[in-house]
Structures are given as structure tokens and as C-alpha cells.
Design a protein around this nucleic acid. Sequence first.
DNA 1: GTTGTTATTGCATCAAAGTTGCATTAATTT
DNA 2: AAATTAATGCAACTTTGATGCAATAACAAC
Lengths: 126, 126
Amino acid sequence: MGIIRKTKSVETLIQLFNQGEEAYSGVYLVDRLRKKMNKTTVYRILERLEDEGMIHSFTDNDGLTWYAKCNGCSSSHHADLHPHFKCRNCGKTVCLNLDIAIPSIPNRKVDSAEFLLIGVCEKCLT
Amino acid sequence: MGIIRKTKSVETLIQLFNQGEEAYSGVYLVDRLRKKMNKTTVYRILERLEDEGMIHSFTDNDGLTWYAKCNGCSSSHHADLHPHFKCRNCGKTVCLNLDIAIPSIPNRKVDSAEFLLIGVCEKCLT
DNA sequence: GTTGTTATTGCATCAAAGTTGCATTAATTT
DNA sequence: AAATTAATGCAACTTTGATGCAATAACAAC
């Protein structure tokens, strides 16, 4: 599961994620890498990178899965509690470097949370 | 769009939602009402009820769409900022009556947010 | 460097959630 | 009661993502 061979496809994806805090949807990656690799390969590499703890994934308000580079999470600790911001104009989605206070709820155990903010990004505002 | 005829199917769904603060996934509703109406009908009624402001929808961490009765939102004001709680054991999902502080982010306009807490519910804890 | 092992890939096929077009049915209006 | 038109059912489709399997390519051992 955790064993990763450094194939060209893997390198390509890792490089992509190393270029910033931007998140990419599975659909976007499959399309962008269409000429370089099969869509099955894209999804499988994403799965492996997530298992490794190199990236994390989350779901947006349309039900699509997004992937971004983790900032300090490992294979054991994947509870990324930072929020994500999605621009409803251009679709660009990023990780936000913010701490969220997880409300404690009586009689329930909270393990993780997904917090997606939707709005308009800097570029689309002007 | 907003015009709703009180058909039997519509009544059935409204009754269901009036029974508490519980949320239901589209999939669940389609299956539960399988013998009473077509799946297309279920989805279309949900859409209309949401347009009306009678229910609201959100997306869970699996990409599924959930529906629940609004507590004070109308067709004009649909920004439900309350969080939702999903039990990862039994799947039961509810609206939480909590105010979330939406973090303000420099240079970005935030319109809405989805906040999903995942954990174990009261019943499954014991 | 060559060989052997096995992870990785591509391809075809499938699955689930949800949507669309269209003819039929049934609320509501007059 | 008739006319209007919203709502429904059905079939087919779209999209995202998963799976089985044979072929390929990393990497380890020699």
C-alpha cells in the first residue's frame, strides 16, 4: 500500500502539487494529464500519495474530490482541519492556513471535520 | 419554478422532513420511497422544496447530497451556516444548532460555507 | 549489466448518483 | 366540466470514480 515507485507519472503529479498550496480536483487532473497518463492511473496515484500522507483530499459542494499537498500531515495523522476556500467564479480552490475551533458537542465524539468556504477570490473580485 | 402543487409525492416528502432535524441523503430517499415514486420524481421534488426554501442541501465527505428541513431560511436567504454532524458508524446525519464564526479572509469575499463534522453519535458511542 | 520479482500502468468494463427529454397524468383554474 | 399546465414515469444518458486483468517497467539481487 505505502510502497511507492518513482515512476514518471508519480513524479509528474508530485511536481504539480509542489508548486503551491493550490488544490486540484480529480477531474481537472485527469483532463490536464490526459496525454501523459490514463485516468485510472491518475486516481490510483492520488490514492497512493494520500496513503503516504503526501497529499490530502476533500470534497467540495458539488461532490467532487479535490487533492492538495499536506502541510505537516503524515500517513498516521491525516486529520487536516484547515478550511478550504473555493472561488465560485473561477473554481480555484486553496487550503487556508487557519485554525478552526472544532465545537465540542455533548454526547458525541468528533473525529474530523470538513470546512469549505465558498466565495470570490482575489483575482475575480477586481 | 417556485410553484408547487400539493401532490401526494410532495406531501410524502414534506411529512418526512417534518419529523425532526434529521437529514436524509438523496440515495436514501430514493430507496425508501422506491415503491411510492420514481427516483427522478424524488430528486425533482427535493429541488423544488429547496427552491422554496423549505429544505436545504449539503454535501458529505463521500460526495453524496443530503437534505434537511431548514430552520429559518427562505428562498431568498439560503445561507445556512450551521454545521452538520455525520456519524461514521451508523451514517445518521443531523443539523447542529450552532453558530459558526466564519473567518474573514483578506482580499476574498466569503458567501457561504459548508461545515461537516464527522464522528460517532450518541447512540453508537454506548 | 542482466535477470527476476512485483508494483504500476493501460485498457475495457462497470457502478452509482444524478440529469434530461418526452409523452402521459393529474392539480388547479376558469 | 373543460382547459391549462405543472408534475410524474420511463428510458436513456452523463459524470465521476472503481475494478479485473494482462502487459509493462521499477527496483533488487546477482
